[in-house]
Amino acid sequence: MPVHHFIPEEPLVESLTDALSTPLKLYPTKPEKVYVFGTCLVDLFYPEAGMSGVVLLEHAGVEVLFPQDQTCCGQPAYTSGYKEEARLVALAQMSIFGEDYPIVVPSGSCGGMMKTHYPRLFEGTEHHQQALDFSERIYELTDFLVHVCDLSLEDKGERTKIALHTSCSSRREMKTTDSGKLLLGQLKNVALVEPKKVTECCGFGGAFSVRHSEISSAMVKDKVMHLSNTKADAFLSSDCGCLMNIKGAAEKDKSALTLRRGEHLLSFVARRAGLIADGVEV
């Protein structure tokens, strides 16, 4: 028999059956308190979205805790391949949400980072179990309002037509595609229209939008086109990255005049429900 000199003697992995199936999504009963993880984009660019989330949670009868020491989930470093840097920042976040309350995040992408990527990030380290436990406590804020808080709202706004952009992370990592629809469904004067290619990425992808700017621009241009074609009055997204990207492109794109209005889903909902006006709590 010839020598198979390049075939290793021993296979290195066990079967990965468990890792292959998608776990069932389970929701807790409505808790007394929750932590809010604000995310760095909400912090610096969309504080109103964070505030709206807080107000909506309280409106649903849940007390909100906001640890001031929180910073960023670590995603920018993680997706850029700087695992060690991401790990150190993630570890800092994991250590400040001490009580066993759920942690709700007004962004599918940061939520996705904490829920689905923290376990991978800490695999093989002493913090792996901590990361697994932590990730189980993470919820996307809209999803939490709809499925845990059972929030009910009264629509105080005029009739309007809205297109909703669902982000890839909320769709594929957080599996919360329906929550935005369900929440908006409570607003009787809001007609929701679905753009074509609704599942396609808007082209943000963090550093990708700068590193491969031509590809990213081509993607967001198409996204703006599909959203504009709905003739909606405005579009909403519950992800600040997508929002920044799509809104920015729509504002620059002369052909997308109708789409110049874009805002965070939570800001829109809180405003319509009369809980926030001009960015201030009512």
Binding site: G38, V42, D43, F45, P47, V220, M244, K247, G248
Partner: peptide
Amino acid sequence: NKRTLPKMAKKSFH
């Protein structure tokens, strides 16, 4: 080149 920049908030969420 293809987008406007979002405005930074005067007061952060924190």
